[in-house]
Simulated assay, not measured.
Amino acid sequence: MTSPQPHPPVTPQRLLDRLDDIGRRLARTPGALALLGLGSVGTDRHRLDEHSDLDFFVVVEDGAEPRFLEQLDWLEGAAPLAFSFANTADGRKALFEDGVYAEYAVFTVAALRSAAYPPARVVWRRPDAPEGLEVPARPLPRDGGDVAHQVSEALTNLLVGLHRDLRGERLAATRLVQVHAVDRVLRLAELAAEERGERGARQDAFAAERGVERAYPSLPLAAMVPGYDRNGPAARAVLDHVARHHREHVDPALRRAVEGLVAAVEEREAADAARATRSS
């Protein structure tokens, strides 16, 4: 059995070149109108590094969507594919043989105009294609709710999550305590940044967790996300952080309820650790 051959490292320039190659292939493919780069290969190229992938939209003539979703000659013409699958009705994920990874969607002009997406970069456009495709017609959805709303969401996530932990539903608890409640903490950090006039801090409009280590380095993320068997300390870290920064929005009765559950979960975790030590 032969071992897989290593491929050259993915570099920012190779990613940009690949996208340009895809644009050239589309230019020779009937039905294609434009290629739009998104994210780090779009308008945020300052973020492009060796861990980036290709995110793009292919804009096509009316009725041409199936041809570009089902026949991948225009994509394989840029470089051989190792894997591809349809992950949505209008999009695919693909891995090239040389390690470049791509996620893309295919839209008609009308469908693109009805979609919400961040500002894009025109990589290629057919001369008769409409101008301004890179500018979204619809605003991106925002995570609704003011500071008081986010605080209450975070603490009720803790409340329900800790009850599930005590019931033995550890995974469900971990998601509520270390994912959903932490998402509310990230939104609170965004709201604070917006109040300071620091708009546009979010790296990815659809994923609040992207780039938070750089955007909010003071967040105690390691304490709030310590792992599957540490929901007690995780909940305590989230509660302490929220209470310290947003005390005026923390309901005292809700805080007491969460504190009592944290103590119960930490007691159970300590007992589990003691049993594991005795049995080892």
Rank of each mutant, 00 (worst) to 15 (best):
T11W: 05
R14E: 02
L16P: 00
G23M: 03
R25L: 06
L33A: 01
G37Y: 01
G39A: 14
S40F: 04
S40H: 05
R45C: 02
L54S: 02
L54W: 03
F68T: 02
F68Q: 02
L69H: 03
L72A: 07
A78R: 00
A79L: 08
P80V: 10
L81S: 05
S84L: 05
E97Q: 11
G99Y: 08
A102N: 03
V109G: 06
Y117S: 08
A120V: 03
R121S: 10
V122M: 07
V123T: 05
V123W: 01
P127N: 07
P141L: 08
Q150I: 00
A154Y: 06
V160F: 14
L162N: 11
L166P: 04
R167M: 11
Q178C: 03
V182S: 01
R187Y: 13
A192L: 09
A193H: 12
E195L: 12
R199G: 10
D204I: 07
D204W: 06
R210I: 05
R214G: 12
Y216L: 06
L221E: 05
P226K: 10
G227P: 11
P233C: 15
A234R: 07
A237P: 13
E248M: 07
R255L: 13
E259F: 04
E259D: 12
G260E: 15
A263I: 00
A263N: 05
E269I: 09
E269Q: 14
